[in-house]
Amino acid sequence: MEITIAKIILAAVTTRKGQDRVSGIPVFYAETDEEMIKMATILSRILEAVAHDMENGVYIIVKH
């Protein structure tokens, strides 16, 4: 058992539509910050994971 966060990014949620090229993980695009937070909450509940704020308009959902 480890107490560190165990480190798989399951998805990302972002408002930065069209600004970045992404590959490798599912990315969900939101129109507003509120929508992004709501999507991140729902995803984290469904995936039993934790939403982390990258502080640049990107939330990542990480499995622990």
Binding site: I37, A40, T41, H52
Partner: peptide, 9 residues
């Protein structure tokens, strides 16, 4: 301790 994104949490 850690980074937590959601305002509710």
């Amino acid at each position: 301790i850690m980074n937590l994104g959601l305002p509710e949490i």
